[in-house]
């Protein structure tokens, strides 16, 4: 099996590589169109700021490639947000896979939302063997609104979509690579989709 982590200069890639290594899976880090196209499954990471991340995607021509992918794709954190229609962060248009907008939490709550929170309303095999109200680790200031493509929701200020699915595209707001054994289970599930 051939798992590729898209490398476009954003994010803490090391933790992801190590998380897969702990599962016994060697990943390939690449921004090469051909390598990404022929992968069995693809991780689309991202930490940082949305508009500059989108610029880096465009520089690597990944903005046109990613929507065409047919194999399972998992967007993590900012990766997930960039797969949405639009994000308020840097007033940025996303890749439009998930039919939802990304907004900033208000100042009624502490921002960023940092720490372990529960995920609920779990749908999809991505959550196989993961219990309702399991804890996942989150670090983010922007959120995807609750919508019909949500496969999990979490509560912070209000209920929002903490995971999304559209065809072969999956997105999680939390960091499975940092979410202890539950996160490892999710990564394992993704590889088995």
């Amino acid at each position: 099996m051939n798992t590729v982590i898209i490398n476009y200069g954003a994010g803490n890639i090391k933790s992801l590589e190590f998380a897969f290594k702990r599962l016994g899976v060697e990943t390939i880090l690449s921004n090469d169109t051909e390598i990404i196209k022929t992968a069995d499954n693809i991780i689309f990471p991202g930490v940082g700021e949305a508009s500059s991340a989108m610029k880096m995607l465009k520089t690597n021509k990944l903005d046109t490639l990613i929507p065409q992918l047919k194999q399972p794709v998992l967007g993590i954190c900012l990766g997930m947000q960039l797969l949405c229609n639009y994000t308020e962060e840097g007033n940025t248009n996303g890749l439009g896979i998930f039919d939802v907008n990304v907004k900033r939490f208000s100042n009624k709550v502490k921002v960023p939302h940092i720490g372990w929170n529960t995920i609920k309303n779990l749908k999809s095999d991505l959550f196989k063997s993961i219990n309702e109200n399991e804890y996942m680790y989150l670090v983010h200031s922007y959120y995807a609104e609750k919508c019909y493509e949500a496969i999990s929701t979490s509560d912070y200020e209000f209920e929002y979509a903490s995971a999304l699915k559209h065809n072969n595209f999956y997105g999680v707001q939390f960091h499975p690579e940092k979410s202890s054994t539950a996160g490892e289970q999710l990564l394992k599930n993704f590889l088995e989709l």
Partner: peptide
Amino acid sequence: AEHINIPFTVGGGISSIEDVDDLLHCGAD
């Protein structure tokens, strides 16, 4: 980073962008 599956912070003697870049590249959260 290789062995731990929860987040961690590194502090002490950090004073530049390069210092932070190095630590994040090593897998610090």
